[in-house]
Nucleic acid binder design. Structure first.
Lengths: 197, 197
DNA sequence: TAATAAAGTAAGTATTCACTTACATAACGT
DNA sequence: ACGTTATGTAAGTGAATACTTACTTTATTA
């Protein structure tokens, strides 16, 4: 009949910007006006792409998780042995962590966990991330014929915790970058090695 | 002259309630109206105790840090050897963690880190906490004549990260309580032991 | 008891913000 | 060309909210 919708393309174009704003300001402080301004469109255009502000936030969570997961899988594909891949991921996370505002969005979401939709999105994200990390630790350990006291699932939670505090340390400048990286690497090695490395 | 001010007593009475509300709702979603309602006073009474909402939040951060620190020192005083004390704290944290909304307030604050006052409060809190943990790990290791690969400061950050993710796991019910406790205890042991236990 | 200041009540205000509406224009299929 | 629908502009709205003000009551002490 008439002009075809480009809503999907546009939302794809806008999502990185929206992520950026949410990660800078958190959920409540991010206004739809600011989102529109940064996207260089009017508010009602955002409301034609998503039903409300919450949907924009949920889309941002989803987008940012997918971005991080894809980045990992690319890194894994680039490295021949699982051991190298794990080391590479640890190194990457220790250095360029938080580059996409991942944790800022997570923190914002964590203060909204009494909203069922946001809670569900977080739960799904954490479960998938934990699984991803488990798989990698497993691969790394098998390749190395490592025996360990610490079950993989626990080590994976430990790593997620380490990544979290490491971001907090970065955010608050509690350590200079090089020390933070060393800290991340040392603790990660201990967790992945499992105490008998 | 006339009636003496009981502002200090009243603010002490109100602070736990204020903490509770901030930890339930985060910073932005907590309204001064809700604070007043939960404290069973009118808004302007809160404004006579603190100059603005931010000051109430900062007071809450301070209060909650002090509560946790005191709880720890009491536990430490109760146990004869440092080793026992560390184990007791780990056990306590693994089980009754988050009881006072500590981490919910921290998360709320972490989304407001571009406010200098809030950032400063967080930095101070983390530094003091890290120091506390360092001291305890040190005491525990010395008492045990443990040598370790992992420097104490790093192990302490690891523990803070573990406590953080453990609270997220609890908050999102990512693991049943008993598994979460086991996870906390196992990873904590590894970190405190330092890989050569 | 009377002066004084704290504690409490209740209404108000200016602003911000999520979301809407009314309308103009531009692109596509037929 | 023409009707249809997406895209864009601009103004508006009602509710929420941080903070204030004007006033009454209560407790304390000189």
């Amino acid at each position: 009949m008439a002009r075809p919708s480009q809503a999907l393309e546009q939302s794809r174009k806008l999502l990185p910007i929206i992520c950026q704003v949410f990660s800078e300001l958190g959920y409540r402080r991010t206004t739809t006006g600011e989102l529109a301004h940064r996207c260089d469109v009017r508010e009602n255009i955002l409301y034609r792409l998503w039903p409300d502000k919450k949907a924009m936030f949920l889309a941002a969570i989803d987008y940012i998780f997918r971005g991080r997961a894809q980045m990992w899988s690319e890194m894994l594909a680039d490295h021949p042995t699982p051991k190298q891949a794990v080391e590479r991921i640890v190194e990457f996370e220790s250095q360029r962590q938080g580059e996409f505002g991942f944790y800022r969005i997570v923190f914002a979401a964590l203060t909204e966990t009494d909203d069922d939709d946001i809670r569900r999105a977080l739960v799904k994200m954490y479960k998938r991330f934990h699984q991803l990390v488990c798989n990698q630790i497993n691969a790394g350990r098998e390749a190395d014929d490592q025996e360990s006291d610490l079950p993989v699932e626990m080590a994976a939670w430990g790593l997620l915790g380490l990544a979290t505090i490491s971001n907090i340390v970065r955010e608050l400048k509690l350590l200079p970058p090089s020390q933070r990286e060393q800290m991340f690497a040392a603790v990660a090695k201990l967790l992945v090695g499992g105490g008998t490395a």
